[in-house]
Design a protein around this nucleic acid. Sequence first.
DNA 1: TGTCTATGTGAATCCTCGC
DNA 2: CGCGAGGATTCACATAGAC
Lengths: 384, 384
Amino acid sequence: MSVLRTGASATASRYPSLPGTGSDLKPDWLDTILVGDCVAALERLPKHSVDVVFADPPYNLQLGGDLHRPDQSRVDACDDAWDQFASFEAYDAFTRAWLLAIKRVLKPTGTLWVIGSYHNIFRVGAKMQDLGFWLLNDVVWLKSNPMPNFRGKRFTNAHETMIWATPSKDTKGYTFNYEALKAFNDDLQMRSDWHLPLCTGGERLKDDNGDKVHPTQKPEALLYRVLLSSTNPGDVVLDPFFGTGTTGAVAKKLGRHFVGVERERSYIEAATKRIAAIEPAEGMVLETVKGKRAQKRIPFGSLLEAGLLKPGAELTCSRGKHRAIVRADGSLASGDFTGSIHKVGALVQGAEACNGWTYWHFTRGSLLEPIDTLREEIRSSMPR
Amino acid sequence: MSVLRTGASATASRYPSLPGTGSDLKPDWLDTILVGDCVAALERLPKHSVDVVFADPPYNLQLGGDLHRPDQSRVDACDDAWDQFASFEAYDAFTRAWLLAIKRVLKPTGTLWVIGSYHNIFRVGAKMQDLGFWLLNDVVWLKSNPMPNFRGKRFTNAHETMIWATPSKDTKGYTFNYEALKAFNDDLQMRSDWHLPLCTGGERLKDDNGDKVHPTQKPEALLYRVLLSSTNPGDVVLDPFFGTGTTGAVAKKLGRHFVGVERERSYIEAATKRIAAIEPAEGMVLETVKGKRAQKRIPFGSLLEAGLLKPGAELTCSRGKHRAIVRADGSLASGDFTGSIHKVGALVQGAEACNGWTYWHFTRGSLLEPIDTLREEIRSSMPR
DNA sequence: TGTCTATGTGAATCCTCGC
DNA sequence: CGCGAGGATTCACATAGAC
């Protein structure tokens, strides 16, 4: 088995520290394509060594004879040998094997993406659940320009389905760049339906005869959204069915590391050339929008230490109905209720919970302002 | 087990001839709701007696504790006992049992629709394939007004999936009203993505307290498309998880026969009343159920995905006074300000709000153009 | 009657850290 | 590991009430 190095893809200052290495040396498999069968090849990777997996397994299309368009031209279908399986059982065994291999190399906080169509995605999804993966979302890629149904016997098959999952139900702390995706989407939450065109035109890899190199090349826009949402710069992205390397290309563009596995020499050659030509983005351009969660926690007591509030100051809710006194230890007192800004806020409202930062207000001049603005003042005065 | 007759629903001149009856007499189960467990109740139906099945089985949601909106209001979750299963194995056994019951009563030329979410649809789809059903399409119902993801930890779950299948790979001659659907869809082939709102407002059944009668009532527009596409007038439509009878209501409206199976008395009562009130309109106006013409929203991030802007590109206001850098996640950075095109536009101006599409400009040749022109380029490259 | 505002709600597998 | 506390988080509609 050989390894083709295709050029570094990350801008991070050091390589990810991998279990068992204790070293900052770049592993020989990073930013390369492993040649061979995916299960066997993945044995070369250490346990828990990749952050995210994007898998585009064979769809097991089970096509009958040739399909022709109304003008009698033949549809160039995906009839490659790698897409043929003898039975559902054979496909299930194949699926189980590569999912288990993925589970070993995926970090406990990592996530797995799988894309498929109705031919295979139900079997893959069920097997993922059987193996303990915990589904976070299914995301549908809606094709703006799908191939029509030429025979008029079914609906135009205009979408494919992606499953996004953690390796276990108990997984906490997986990467989801919520705020970045929201900014991307004009300040609205990103939904589970993604409207994107097919991979065509200049992006579609062609051989010397002008034929497409790979029958199911995915658009880079799709991977762009996948990696933007679930990885950070410097992360390691594994694609066990690398094909012509869309995952690697986008990973390099976005300053992520990649590792691919592929059997077909022709695909590897095309992918290698493609990725080598890519200029990665660098530096601040790769920084994403972060929300409050990513910022350093500032306890309420800091406002007293900074002199922004004084012991004895009065806080009220936005309508002045509830009032509380700030005590020297950073707790509040309101009638018989005492405790943190959150606890007292909840108690005076009779609510289960309360965010005291936005509930309690102080008086500046003649205006009521939430104490959260004082926290912001401390944050902005801190070294970045 | 009792049978509630709820009124005739068909405009066909005679009743469907059913195997073993040799008679035109209306069977006693037609246009009724069978009370009881679906597998047991279906034994009352003759073999090969229904044309189409629409099944909305329990999703097995596996919810944890309570969920609250940011305003602290509690989400009224679907936590009914009928949605609880002890394990995936138990759910699979349940699925297998009702699918087999369906296969017996379904005509060889009939089709089966199943709706579900990522919690269950993969298991159901795999089991369908295991039992020999042949998948024709998966169709995604895209919700125009889904519930948001309140904690910002996943993508907004904005769709559900339907699977449409024949009972066998060899099935020929199933009903698909291709031309009708195409006319319905402004002379375009009907696609596998259907944009429809949730069932709310006056259509949503409420009890005397104003509470919803059923936690998961489906919109009639969804069933309208299902029945319009895969049944003919006079056909028999079976819904083995009848609930409050959306399938029966739409079947009656469209001059199809129905038969439902339901365990819960309260649902049956509501469904009976609902269906009895329906006037089966002949030549009903189809326009009423057409989905709203989807005006596609193009998020700013799409300009990056499409390669029309590159990470690191500089944008300016029309007079060049304010400048910002495009980051890989579709956010802008201008000095200390970061965020969406709208937010940063507002911040640099000190304004409350800003339309980033018209405020920010890019350089083409020596000309400044608003980024809105790039959005138009994407729009015009999309079909219609 | 009309317009604006406040409130309610939908199939939801919805937190993270420190002790 | 469990437990408790801090404190972060929402979009499209429909309906009712205010003015």
